[in-house]
Design a protein around this nucleic acid. Sequence first.
DNA 1: CACATAACTGGACTACAGTCCGAATGAATG
DNA 2: CATTCATTCGGACTGTAGTCCAGTTATGTG
Lengths: 207, 207
Amino acid sequence: MDRGPAGRRRVDLELMRTPPPKERADAARNRVKVLEAAAELFASHGVESVSMDAIATAAGVGKGTLFRRFKDKAGLAAALLDDRERDLQDAILSGPAPLGPGLGDTTVSPSERLHAFADAYLDYALSHLSLVRMSETAAPGARYRIGAYGFWHRHLTMLLDQSVDDGDALAHALLAALGAEHLTAMVESIGRKRARAAVHVLFEAAT
Amino acid sequence: MDRGPAGRRRVDLELMRTPPPKERADAARNRVKVLEAAAELFASHGVESVSMDAIATAAGVGKGTLFRRFKDKAGLAAALLDDRERDLQDAILSGPAPLGPGLGDTTVSPSERLHAFADAYLDYALSHLSLVRMSETAAPGARYRIGAYGFWHRHLTMLLDQSVDDGDALAHALLAALGAEHLTAMVESIGRKRARAAVHVLFEAAT
DNA sequence: CACATAACTGGACTACAGTCCGAATGAATG
DNA sequence: CATTCATTCGGACTGTAGTCCAGTTATGTG
């Protein structure tokens, strides 16, 4: 597979975010090569059936490099999702209502914001389901360790606390229904439309 | 699950038309040896850190035997849980109220039965958490394929349908909060007591 | 520019799940 | 008891995730 500069294909996501602490030039080059190779292999063969060896080989990089940078397969998947996830988080933190808080004098009910979150999260998760699933399940308990889970949980807790007693606990329960493993099974058994509806039924019940 | 044909009855309806599939003596012996070895190793070293090789060796059996009989590590865990799980299912189907239907003229509200189910299921799952987790997560999507999931789901659906619209979908959502992976994370982060309370909050909200 | 050193690299290596198939063995039959 | 044959046995084999470390390279300092 010729990956010379001339034939290099653009990855449509901005995947090569540079970490603040100085990164060596060769390391940056390899990070980009790995993410491009992974995106391409995942797209063409399916996330499940691409081995880390295959990614390392396609990227022209050693396995040690791959694992040092991304920790494991879940970390690699998370890196590929990073931008999309960040967009969603930004929209929640500072975007327009009802997903975000809206402008100064906007008033949206917590319930509206909960449903808006459910919709936006499902848009995100369902359109990259196998990647999200990989990022959550490749390592045992990975889902609950990554920062994103904490973010979603804080957001839901904040909204729920305005109308129920134990918002914290309820937030965990609602997030359980948004887990990729569960979403995958739901989509397979009842389809996207009903799976989406089921989430809204649950979120409605929680308020 | 795999308890062999010990309880099978021969049905002589007609001629020798039915070839009786019988378990060979050596196979039965090995099944017992494997289950005993697995139970002991799991108890002493923890489910996660016992390899299938180790179990095969301890049981004095080849790997092929192990995998043919139990399919994979999830299947082995499920076999070890079989009795407990069956007890719970029996109690639900024909035990005393509020967990079971009770005697003829007993009347228990669906809500009561839902909470009784939550309690009983948590008793079961929390006291064998790592085994349950193994049975659900060793293979991807294993949880939703095993028969037990269908059983819990049908039971919840039946109860929920008496008070809400889409009981089926809601049942899936409630079960998501009972997944071993989720329970493990909850117990680690907020402890058994609050995790249990969170499940009840959710079940309460669903009715 | 030369050097010191901290960070990066990459492939050999380990451990584990799961597959395969020739050999061994139990049970039914005559 | 001998024969037949379906079933089971068990260890060699494959493929993958993840580790390790000796050698390499980039970068700050005199």
